[in-house]
Design a protein around this nucleic acid. Structure first.
Lengths: 152, 152
DNA sequence: AAAACCCATGCAAGGTGCTTGCATAGTAGG
DNA sequence: CCTACTATGCAAGCACCTTGCATGGGTTTT
């Protein structure tokens, strides 16, 4: 992974639909070589995938919420079950096991407060392993590039 | 936006590199019509963009941190300045203005604890508008599809 | 220092995919 | 029932991607 590879990664993070010709102009290589390097980065697992980014409002999922989840008791069984729960719920678009008081941070995408409420009550709190949750609603998303700063 | 459009959106969220032929098989349309619908969804701003997703570890940015930022004083000037700060810092890959006690949640991607520390001290706390921060480090990312659950 | 080797690169061709004009089917309104 | 409009499929022309092949730059070996 040299500087050219990182340039390719940065470019594809910004726009995954770049043709190899456009990529070639950006990084200063031929299109064929860009194709080869990109293929290799995919094979090495550096590039995990390509995803379309959708508008939250226009798709009707304008409500973003960050919830802190605390487990009832800390054991491997509960840990395993909570992971399965997180993976089974499509409203959860991101989940982390954290340091500090709160055990997990999860990010939720819902249509409105009503569906958020039913998600929390029926899906989260209904689960035995969950002790309590703390909900914080995003008033405004100021930034949402999930782009790794490969240039640093 | 009918059911077919939502199917297209769901498919492209999972894999933006799908050919129109593959897309056609998934949603049950011809390739040409998939092309036209996709183009329209882009024009309407429903599809905001296409982005490569990179492996955090392999790109050397394996440390994910969520920081709560509290402003010193709440006025529009500070609010404006904090937005500019967030936008200027590439380590911040997501930022929200929140309800509740904490004013902002920001998600940080850094190489290691050392660079995280210098980010907090030199970039965040150095800023006049910032009163204090609360740092929570992600021990493990359990889930990270930023995919809107368009199917719900 | 010379030679041998290896890897990255550019070029070109063959194949694949994308886009758009055109004709048709399906649908809603009068 | 007819008209008008939109959505669709097909096909062709065009752009793009990929890969074999030859070349060059850099490195190791003798």
């Amino acid at each position: 992974m040299d500087k050219t590879d990182r340039n390719i990664l940065a470019a594809l993070q910004n726009d995954a639909r770049l043709t190899n010709n456009e990529l070639a102009d950006i990084v200063g290589l031929s299109a064929s070589q860009c194709s080869r390097r990109r293929t290799q980065l995919e094979k090495d697992g550096v590039i995990v995938g390509y995803h379309a980014k959708l508008d939250r409002e226009k798709t009707g999922f304008g409500l973003t919420t960050i919830i802190s989840v605390t487990l009832a008791t800390h054991n491997s069984e509960n840990s395993k079950r909570i992971r399965e729960l997180f993976n089974s719920l499509p409203e959860i678009i991101e989940a982390h096991a954290m340091t500090g008081e709160m055990d997990y941070y999860i990010k939720i995408a819902t249509k409105d407060l009503k569906s958020l409420s039913s998600f929390i009550n029926d899906k989260l709190l209904a689960h035995e392993a969950v002790q309590n949750v703390k909900t914080a609603i995003s008033l405004e998303t100021l930034k949402d590039t999930q782009n790794i700063p490969v240039g640093l």
